[in-house]
């Protein structure tokens, strides 16, 4: 997932003089700089051919990993996916477009 954030701010600890006043942080959504994807032991595998873009997985993914492009499901952000398996579980049984397998 691409972001416009300055990577240096998240790899080095900034000195007091470079911090916004009051402990405020101004880069909204900066948690995307944290790659929680390395937590997982299992990972979802999405089958584009089977997917009907019902967005049920999008509704329930706790880590906002379901990627949408042009109003269709486009993939899964494995950089942040923690491998919980909710997406595979909520995918309608008749569709069954997501399977969990051992994380690579």
């Amino acid at each position: 997932m691409t972001t416009m954030l300055d990577e240096k701010k998240y790899t080095a600890n900034l000195p007091a003089s470079e911090l916004p006043e009051g402990g405020v942080w101004t880069e909204a959504g900066s948690s995307l700089m944290r790659k929680t994807g390395d937590w997982k032991v299992e990972q979802p595998v999405w089958d584009k051919a089977k997917c009907i873009s019902c967005f049920t997985c999008w509704a329930y993914c706790p880590d906002s990993c379901m990627q949408i492009e042009n109003g269709r499901m486009a993939g899964i952000d494995l950089e942040h996916c923690k491998g919980c398996g909710i997406c595979a579980n909520v995918c309608p049984p008749k569709v069954s477009a997501i399977k969990m397998e051992k994380a690579r």
Binding site: L19, G23, T26
Partner: peptide, 12 residues
């Protein structure tokens, strides 16, 4: 949109 009142760990 800003975040105010973040939790700081040992590094901040």
């Amino acid at each position: 949109p800003i975040t105010v009142g973040s939790i700081d760990l040992q590094n901040y």
